[in-house]
Every structure is written in C-alpha cells, then in structure tokens.
Design a protein around this nucleic acid. Sequence first.
DNA 1: CCTTGTTTTAAACACTTGTTTAAAATGCTT
DNA 2: AAGCATTTTAAACAAGTGTTTAAAACAAGG
Lengths: 203, 203
Amino acid sequence: MGKDSSTEEKIRNAARQVFLSKGFDGCTSREIAKAAGENVALVNYYFRSKSQLFKLIFEDAMEEFVNSMVLVFGSDRSLKEKMAIFIEKEYDFLAKHPEIPSFLLNEMNREDGCSIPPNVHFEKIASTGVFEECIKAQQAGKMREIDLRSIPLLIMSNCHYPVMAKNLMMHLQSMSADEFDQNLKLHREHVARMLVDYLFPEN
Amino acid sequence: MGKDSSTEEKIRNAARQVFLSKGFDGCTSREIAKAAGENVALVNYYFRSKSQLFKLIFEDAMEEFVNSMVLVFGSDRSLKEKMAIFIEKEYDFLAKHPEIPSFLLNEMNREDGCSIPPNVHFEKIASTGVFEECIKAQQAGKMREIDLRSIPLLIMSNCHYPVMAKNLMMHLQSMSADEFDQNLKLHREHVARMLVDYLFPEN
DNA sequence: CCTTGTTTTAAACACTTGTTTAAAATGCTT
DNA sequence: AAGCATTTTAAACAAGTGTTTAAAACAAGG
C-alpha cells in the first residue's frame, strides 16, 4: 500500500485548512478537493466520506490541543512557574493556530458533533499529576482554595477567547487587525499577571 | 399592511431560534419554515431571502448584546461597583441566552459575515462615558494602568467563554451538564473577585 | 355578488450537495 | 511485453439547496 505522502496527505492537509477555517457545515467536498488540487472522487476514495475525513481532522486538532496542555504541566517547575509558562506557551501556540479554539468549540456544539471517548483526553491531562500538585499546594496554603475544574476554565477563557473574538473586538472597538495584534501582546501580560496573582495570592 | 404578529413574527422567531443554535450554514430555509409551521415560500415572501432574514436576526442579537453592556455602565455607581454588577448581570443574561456569544463570534468570522457599520455599536458603548470615567480613575491611582481596550476583552473572556465552552469542558473533564452548571456558579464568583481585584488593586 | 389587494399554497426552477460508477491512466512484477 | 492491482478521472446519481412562479384562498369594501 502506497506512500502516505502525495495525494492522500495533500487532501488531508487541504481538509485540515478548510475545515479549521470554515467548519464542517461551512465547506463542501469539492472545495476541499480543489484546495488539494485533486479530483472530488479522491476525497471519498481515500477517506470514505466527508464526515469520516472530518472526524480525523477533528481528533487531530483535539489531540494537538490537549497535548499543548500536557506538555507544560509535565515539567518539574513550581506550580506558579508552570502556570505562567503555560500561559506564555498557549499564547504562542494560538498565534500560530488561531482557528483551533473556535473550531473545537463550534464542532463540539454541533448536533452529532463529538463522538470521541472523553476519558482519553481527561486521563492525558490527569496523568501529569498536576491535579495532585494543586491539592498539595492548596493544603499548604500556597494556592487559593478553588475547585480544580475552574482553573483550566480560567486559563482557557483568558487565552482562547481573545483569539476567537478578534473580529468581534475589531468591530466593536473599530480597530485594525494590526492594532488588535499589538494590543494582544499587552493583554497577554495582564492575563498572566492577573491569573497568577489570583491563584497564588501573596500570603 | 398587516398585523406584524402572526405569520411574519412566527417566522422571525423560528429563524432566531434556528439560526442561533445552528448558525447560517448549519440550517436550511425549509428547516426555518417548518419550525415556524409555515410554508417555505413565506420565508422569502416576508424576508426576500435567507441572507436577508439572517442579517435581521444577527443585528438584533448584536444589539441585544451591546445593550446589555450599555445598561450597567450608564448607571451612577462607582466604577468598581459597576464592574461587579456588570459581571453579575452578564452571567444572568448568558444563562438565559447561552447561544449568543458563540453565534456572534462564528458569524463574525464567516466570510461575508458581518456587513454592519461598526461605529454604531462603538458609539453606543462610548456614549455611556465609561471610558472617560476609567481614565479619571486611572489618573487618580484608583484603577490599574491598562489599555482601556483590554478591559472589555478581560470581562468578555471570563463571562462568555465559560458559556461557549460548556460542551468542551464537559467532555475534557468528563462531567455532566448539571455538574458544570453547578460549578459555573462558583466560577462566576471567582471571576468577579479576580477581575475586580486586578483592575482595582488595594492601595 | 364581484372586485381588489393581500396572504398562502404546491409545484417547479436551476443549481449544489455528498457519493458512486465505470472507464481510463498509472505503476509494478513477472 | 503482458497482466495485475492501484490510482485517477469525468460523468452521473439521487437528494437537498435557495428561490420563483402561478394559481388558489382569503379578507374587505363597494
């Protein structure tokens, strides 16, 4: 069976790009094929159906997404440092892949959207031991008493939303894309300071 | 010309519900008509086209959205109080209309998505005088030195994202809808405290 | 009643959708 | 070169899309 470079990969990459920016409903099989420079029939020849191909792309994105979480938490810095570094990395990651948050959220909310076993991703994050680390820190009085499930939500809110809301904010505050990007660099520092200050209050 | 109750409104309401939950690409004219219990042709009879009808719904949602901002900032409380109240109101509002943030963001990012004059909404917010109020507070050392455009972004991030990410969080943390909603109540208080503490540091 | 204008309907329009087919092109082994 | 499976193509398929049409149903006033 063939090299997985060439055609199959070309379609997969094109699909990724198109799906990420337009979503499942927002694009057509022919659009993906054209973006790959290949015949429409090849999409189904290699991936059986549009949905099947989408599932592949979606799970890839989800994995990439979760991995970027796991990476930092696995290191052996202090919890406070980890948090700050994670926010840094997250902003860097999102600068390169700004469509991922919107993509995941949207397709997660579509009916018959997500058919993935949840435990996989949960386990991956839990396996870094970051949760136990938090509990310890809380018991030692070094970390604010807060439900552990709120922490990812706090971080993700402040990292993901700004990227997703770029167009909306540009509209509401009538600013250009450059202005927004420039402002985002400052915003990022506020976010890091605010979250760390809140989660690790000074005595 | 007829009563604007009955058919026209029935279609408009159905369209709102369907558009909000599925987006422009995610639904069909026939689906809207069926939801309204009327014939397909009536959609175009009253609204000329699917796009036209969508534009109406979209601008309505946007207005509702901006108004919920303006309402609080127009009151005559202290800035610190306004902020806290606003977050409260926003969470209440979003509990009733959880689809609006996703809807606005998505359709804002669609190509040929937003064809609305931006200045309208910007002016509406600016006209509350909240910006001048912030500048004053910053000069008096009562408010953190931060670009004013970051403040709405901070607030919206922490109010809107949690609602949008409900399904994603349920999945990642393998929790039920009830668990999530319960957690959201606690989360909301953290958000209010964190934002106020950060924007109005004690001395 | 008939006439007028408005509202509603079923049917059709042209076009796009995802998917399949059957034939053509290509590559590889013998 | 011949035979083979694999890959690619253009064409077709049925179903669904937004929109239009032309006729029917309705309401109101003369």
